[in-house]
Write a protein that binds this DNA or RNA. Structure first.
Lengths: 232, 232
DNA sequence: GGCCATGTTTGCGCCGGGTCAAAGAGCGCC
DNA sequence: GGCGCTCTTTGACCCGGCGCAAACATGGCC
């Protein structure tokens, strides 16, 4: 589709090492689609018709358990590919992706994937690295859930959020999109009550600063020490 | 290296769709190496010099936390690739792989990977699917650790073990390699004490049968119901 | 065949954090 | 500009499962 400029995807890792003409060619097959805040880009168990690159906004990717609990898998930030279910051999999406703010993504039909990787071998190699680093992240979470207490898990989660979606402001680093205590609970395997108690305590120590759907880290270094288990 | 017959890797998914001549060509670059029980195939944080396919035996892959706790990432069974750190863009291994019984693996130098995928594009695609399915597994574990109680996590872990490494015997399905209560604890984020108590209780109900480094599932269906949360 | 190392069982006490309940606070919408 | 929904805070209670401790079983090895 016309109108998608190459500069939009200049720094996207999945396109690393591909020639400009190749990138243009890939972009021609994509559509740019808007997803208003609150809408789902795709839903768990739905047929994996498309794969995506986020251009603008933020997505919350979560799994729903049979008894209705949600577990946040990750947040997608601009420049990331997502919804690559087909590429990893799945017919359906393993989770739901929901826009937490108005978002825009490039959309390719999944059916085009085999042809695209055949034409651009670098694509499979780059995607392999992307999926690989997500595997690392997932294993890190497994280790944390298995061995750390709640407070340290929350600290780790916030530090990771700050790194990937932090905006530097005067007084510290602020998470760049609306995020609830419930979200943090669903990232760390605990309850919103416990998260609230922990954040309140940290706020009293000047470690973080809260607000409705807002978290700002005032002292990243101290939070890091806490995450690594140095006695409070 | 001579002496590695194609029939050894007939059903290995990573080679799916490759022509027999291509497979022969890949095998020529590999060495077959023995790893006696208890030895490490590679170690966490060590430079990722090689990648592997397990031909015979079983490996226990685990991560070591800074405070010395181990978390079992998975068990490798014959036919699986492992140690593909380089392919997913890491210079070092993220975990340790240890032979739980005498094992044999095919070994390629990591340095050969870029050339191999360039020559055999199907390799990257297949590896992507393999890594993708591991990502699924890891996310499943995150969901379980986040939302389920210990007993159900242990049930899920045993069912997965039985599926991937179960040997049918007269009275049920037996895990096909020596596995300790401690191992199960490290797979499920609990302690060996709790695992022991759970297994003892299940044994009293005729669900499983234990022994030193031995677990046999007598009633997979009942165990499945328990794993899915049906009231005991 | 007996010793020793490694793995397993079991009891007891305690506490991190989940559950239940209810009262505030901020924001969007009409 | 006020009403109501959503998000957050805080309290009180309680229990699953972890930590500690000690006895017991099993198989490998000399």
């Amino acid at each position: 589709m016309a109108g998608v400029d190459r500069s939009l995807v200049a720094g996207v890792p999945v396109f690393a090492g591909l020639a400009p003409e190749q990138i243009d060619q890939l972009l021609q097959e994509a559509q740019s689609v808007r997803y208003p805040k609150g809408t789902n880009v795709f839903q768990q168990d739905e047929e994996a018709h498309s794969f995506f690159i986020l251009l603008h906004g933020h997505l919350r990717v979560f799994k729903l358990t049979p008894d209705g609990q949600q577990v946040v898998v990750r947040f997608v930030t601009p420049g990331e590919v997502f919804g690559v279910a087909m590429a990893i051999g799945r017919m359906t999406y393993p989770a739901t992706a929901q826009a937490v703010v108005d978002s825009i993504a490039l959309v390719w039909p999944s059916a085009a994937w085999p042809r695209l990787v055949a034409t651009h071998p670098g694509l499979a190699v780059n995607t392999l690295q992307t999926v690989g680093s997500r595997l690392q992240d997932a294993h890190t979470r497994v280790v944390e859930l298995s061995t750390e207490q709640v407070e340290r898990r929350v600290a780790h989660a916030l530090l990771r959020l700050a790194q990937r979606a932090g905006r530097k402001v005067e007084a510290g680093v602020e998470i760049d999109f609306p995020i609830t205590r419930q979200d943090v609970a669903e990232m760390t395997g605990t309850t919103l009550h416990t998260v609230s108690r922990i954040l309140t305590a940290w706020e009293a120590q000047g470690l973080v600063e809260g607000g409705r759907q807002r978290i700002m880290i005032r002292d990243p270094h101290k939070l890091f020490l806490l995450a690594e288990g140095s006695p409070s």
